[in-house]
Each structure stands twice: as C-alpha cells, then as structure tokens.
Amino acid sequence: MKQQSRPIEILLVEDNPADVDLTLESFAEISTRNRLHPVKDGEEALRFLRQQGEYTNAVRPDMIMLDLNLPRMDGLEVLEIIKSDPELKTLPVLVLTSSHSQKDILASYSLHANCYLTKPLGLDRFYQIARAVESFWFDLVALPRTERPG
C-alpha cells in the first residue's frame, strides 16, 4: 500500500447542501488524509480548476467527484469540458449522482468518466462509498501528480 505524504485534494461538484454535508461527513469520518473542496455548479467547478476569479489560489485536485444534475451547466457538459482540456483531462472524475439511468451511465463513460457511482440513501451507505473510494483510489491506484506552475 502507498503512503500519502500530503492530503488528497478532492473537488466535490454538488449543488444539494444535504448531499454536500453527507459527503463531507463520510469522508471526514473514514480518513484524515483527504480535503474536500465543495462547489455548487459546473461553472464554479471550472473556475476552481482553472484558478479563476475567487479561486486564484485553489489547489489542483487529485480527483473530481461530479454530480450530473447541476444548475447552469450540467455534469455531462462539465465532464466533456474537463476531458477535452489538455490541462485537465488526466484528472480522475468520479460521477456521483442520483441517476440510475443507463443513458446517463453510458454518456458518462462515453465522455471518459473514470467511474460512475449512484448516490446512496443513508449515512451508512455514504460511509461505504467513502471507504471504497479511499481504499481503491488512494491506496491502490497511482494518481497523476501534476503541480500547478508558480
């Protein structure tokens, strides 16, 4: 198993405050190695990723957790922009959404999502997802480490 020398930075793109709270609580409960950075829509996520506006000092995330049902710009649009941008396309994107639709699953993978997770009902299931993400993505998988210029 790999040992992390720095926190794992996760950009959480989620407009539902209750789901943000559940995700933050779940990840905080299972690990102290991660830091979640919640943003409420796709446009805000892109500003964060590009260090624009209020996010000029934003960290480069190691991973993005992306809801599909977002205001202003839906998650599939955000995913398409991320995966077509040479600066961003190597970032792992985990779709975390309430949709069980095969259309959404296929569209997400067609746009190169790294995995598709359906939001669980209840805190215990959120903990299960947080543990699975932590174990697989941060203990087993080698993530690209690209530092921001500066």
Score class of each variant (00 low, 15 high):
residue 2 K to P: 04
residue 4 Q to V: 15
residue 6 R to A: 12
residue 9 E to F: 00
residue 10 I to T: 07
residue 13 V to D: 09
residue 16 N to Y: 05
residue 19 D to Q: 13
residue 20 V to N: 01
residue 21 D to S: 09
residue 21 D to F: 11
residue 23 T to P: 10
residue 25 E to W: 11
residue 26 S to E: 10
residue 28 A to D: 06
residue 31 S to N: 03
residue 38 P to H: 05
residue 39 V to W: 09
residue 39 V to Y: 05
residue 40 K to A: 13
residue 41 D to Y: 04
residue 43 E to M: 10
residue 43 E to W: 13
residue 46 L to E: 11
residue 48 F to G: 11
residue 49 L to I: 15
residue 51 Q to N: 14
residue 58 A to F: 04
residue 58 A to H: 06
residue 59 V to K: 12
residue 59 V to P: 13
residue 62 D to T: 08
residue 63 M to V: 09
residue 67 D to A: 09
residue 69 N to F: 10
residue 70 L to M: 12
residue 75 G to C: 15
residue 75 G to Q: 14
residue 76 L to V: 10
residue 76 L to Q: 05
residue 78 V to P: 03
residue 80 E to F: 06
residue 80 E to A: 03
residue 86 P to N: 02
residue 87 E to D: 09
residue 87 E to H: 14
residue 87 E to W: 02
residue 88 L to N: 01
residue 89 K to P: 04
residue 92 P to D: 02
residue 95 V to N: 13
residue 97 T to D: 10
residue 100 H to N: 07
residue 103 K to A: 01
residue 104 D to Y: 15
residue 106 L to T: 02
residue 108 S to Q: 12
residue 113 A to P: 14
residue 113 A to L: 12
residue 114 N to V: 06
residue 117 L to W: 05
residue 120 P to V: 00
residue 121 L to C: 00
residue 122 G to S: 12
residue 123 L to S: 05
residue 124 D to N: 11
residue 129 I to N: 03
residue 132 A to R: 02
residue 135 S to I: 00
residue 139 D to V: 01
residue 140 L to P: 15
residue 141 V to S: 08
residue 141 V to K: 14
residue 145 R to K: 13
residue 146 T to S: 12
residue 146 T to H: 10
residue 147 E to R: 10
residue 147 E to F: 04
